[in-house]
C-alpha cells in the first residue's frame, strides 16, 4: 500500500511499487493532463510538482512518493500559475498542446524561484522540456510576460 497526496486529496493504492507515478496518475487517478512523451526523462511532458519541486513523473517510482505531496497541472494554482496561464493564453503559445502541461509546470517552478528570469535562466530551466512544434519563441516571451505581471 502506498499513501500519498495528489492535488490536495489523499490516496492509498495497492500497486506495484515500481510503477512510475506517471502511470499511476493517468491509469489509476485519470489525471490525464500529465503526458507521456518519452518515458526516460528526456522530454519533460510528464512534469509534476513533488513537494513543490518539478519532477519527471515517468522516472518516479510510486514507492518514492510515499507520504509525499504531488501537484499535477489540474491542481496548479497560485499567482505564478495564474500569471503563466494568462501569458500562455494571451499569445497562443500552444500548437499541438501535448507538451504544454510540462512546459507550464517548469515555467511556474522557474518563476517561483526567480522572479525576473533572464533568457539564460529560461534556457536553463526549460532545457528539459521538448516542444516538437517548436513553440519556444512564444514560451520564452510568455515567461517574460508572466514575470512582468507578477512584478506588478
Amino acid at each position: 500500500m502506498t499513501s500519498f497526496r495528489v492535488n490536495g486529496r489523499d490516496h492509498d493504492l495497492d500497486i506495484d511499487p515500481d510503477t512510475p507515478l506517471l502511470w499511476v496518475l493517468r491509469d489509476e487517478l485519470h489525471l490525464t493532463g500529465t503526458k507521456f512523451g518519452c518515458g526516460i526523462a528526456q522530454c519533460g511532458a510528464c512534469t509534476v510538482m513533488l513537494d513543490g519541486m518539478p519532477r519527471r513523473a515517468c522516472v518516479t517510482p510510486i514507492s518514492m512518493v510515499e507520504g509525499r505531496e504531488v501537484t499535477t497541472i489540474e491542481g496548479m494554482e497560485g499567482p505564478e500559475t495564474e500569471a503563466v496561464r494568462a501569458a500562455w493564453t494571451a499569445i497562443d503559445v500552444p500548437q499541438c498542446g501535448w507538451c504544454q502541461s510540462g512546459q507550464i509546470m517548469s515555467a511556474v517552478a522557474l518563476l517561483q524561484a526567480v522572479s525576473a528570469p533572464s533568457d539564460e535562466d529560461i534556457d536553463n530551466a526549460m532545457a528539459g522540456n521538448v516542444c516538437r512544434c517548436a513553440t519556444y519563441i512564444r514560451i520564452r516571451q510568455a515567461i517574460h510576460d508572466a514575470a512582468k505581471v507578477l512584478e506588478g
Binding site: 515500481d18 518515458g39 526516460i40 526523462a41 512534469t47 519541486m53 518539478p54 519532477r55 519527471r56 522516472v59 518516479t60 517510482p61 518514492m64 517548469s106 515555467a107 517552478a109 522557474l110 524561484a113 526567480v114 528570469p117 535562466d121 536553463n124 530551466a125 526549460m126 532545457a127 528539459g128
Partner: peptide, 19 residues
C-alpha cells in the same frame, strides 16, 4: 538550475526503465 535541478529527474536510487 532553478526549475531544473538534479532531483527533477534523479532520485535516491537507480531506477530501472522499461524497454
Amino acid at each position: 538550475a532553478a526549475g531544473m535541478t538534479c532531483n527533477t529527474c534523479h532520485g535516491d536510487k537507480n531506477i530501472r526503465l522499461t524497454g
